[in-house]
């Protein structure tokens, strides 16, 4: 780990000023990803601005039924919160499916949004990776890419976003609030993470000097009937091969509300909008679910080591929707 200056600012204004002043400064939250990457030499900030002491730790109910989540709320606190468990169970389940209890106790909401990929070639400094070193090439495409993307990948990068929490946030139309010396802005989560294209090293819309201060969830009655299903290579403490966040509202046998997002399939949490459109108004049947999944996954492209994820995603979408339909949400 490169030696760095450690700064603990007293408030948000000081924090964003501190990062704006140093081109190689980074915000530090729970450290569960950044400290690891710093020790690996992949991240090498010269200044670390520890924001964990800032007063961004509240979970508040918004007028109209939404929820505002401070960016420094720990993942475990968010998952355990009554409002989340009852109104957005898919979000609680998604968080609880990620990492381990220890890591969830450390990780912050803001940090979780900015997690970097687990691609094996990104982590190995000896390998070619366009994310780490633009223009170096992508060793994963012809190498090991079991965790790699089946949607929205490019010739330059097949990495996936590793967060579970973000998959639920994508399904829930969350909005990210960010602050910098230039002011405060709101970024819909749907557009927060970027697909790789030719610039896989640019992973989000967030500028380097912007601090995530909050995430807002709009009111969503359908979200009360929701689940998160994560499929992985062991029963716990592993990243997703495929995950599905699904909310479903059915009246008189027809789908009247649906939210669907996928994890483990793309460089961003994948909101399955096409599937949602196909489902709205359709009969709530296994056939409809399968049809919707097929529409969403029609553009999916597999590589030799991850093509199975197309079928797996299809099946997991159907299974998760079926479970919400037959057993209700996780709340």
């Amino acid at each position: 780990m490169r030696s760095f200056a450690y700064v603990r600012p007293p408030d948000v204004a000081a924090a964003v000023r501190a990062v704006a002043a140093e081109p190689d400064a980074k915000f530090l939250g729970g450290g569960t990803n950044l400290v690891d990457l710093m020790r690996e030499g992949i991240e090498r900030p010269g200044t670390v601005v520890d924001v964990t002491g800032l007063p961004l730790q509240q979970i508040e109910e918004l007028p109209g039924g939404g929820v505002r989540i401070g960016a420094l709320v720990r993942n475990s606190s968010l998952a355990a919160h009554r409002l989340i468990r009852t109104r957005y169970p898919m979000l609680a389940q998604a968080i609880l499916s990620g990492a381990s209890a220890q890591l969830r106790n450390m990780a912050t909401v803001g940090g979780n949004l900015l997690q970097r990929t687990r691609c094996l070639y990104f982590y190995d400094g000896a390998a070619a990776c366009n994310k780490r070193e633009p223009g170096a090439g992508c060793a994963a495409r012809d190498g090991f890419h079991r965790g790699g993307a089946i949607l929205g990948a490019s010739g330059a990068c097949v990495a996936t976003h590793p967060s579970d929490m973000c998959v639920a946030l994508a399904a829930l139309d969350a909005v990210v609030e960010a602050e910098s010396v230039r002011g405060v802005r709101r970024i819909p989560l749907a557009g927060f993470h970027r697909l790789p294209g030719d610039t896989p090293h640019i992973e989000t819309e967030l500028a380097a000097d912007e601090l995530i201060t909050a995430v807002e969830l709009p009111a969503s009655p359908v979200a009360a009937h929701s689940r998160y299903r994560k499929v992985r290579d062991r029963a716990s403490y592993a990243f997703a091969l495929v995950s599905v966040a699904a909310a479903l509202e059915v009246r008189h046998g027809a789908v009247t509300g649906v939210r669907l997002a996928l994890g483990g399939v793309a460089a961003k949490p994948w909101r399955a909008s096409k599937a949602e459109q196909a489902l709205l108004g359709a009969p709530a049947t296994e056939e409809s679910f399968r049809h919707a999944a097929e529409i969403e996954l029609a553009p999916a492209e597999g590589l030799p080591g991850n093509a199975f994820k197309i079928e797996l995603a299809r099946r997991t979408i159907v299974a998760t929707l079926r479970q919400v339909l037959t057993q209700g949400g996780a709340a």
Binding site: R118, L120, D233, R234, A235, S236, Y237, A238, F239
Partner: peptide, 11 residues
Amino acid sequence: LAEYHVPVHAD
């Protein structure tokens, strides 16, 4: 140990 999967408690 994150990417080589030895069994965890839940397995």
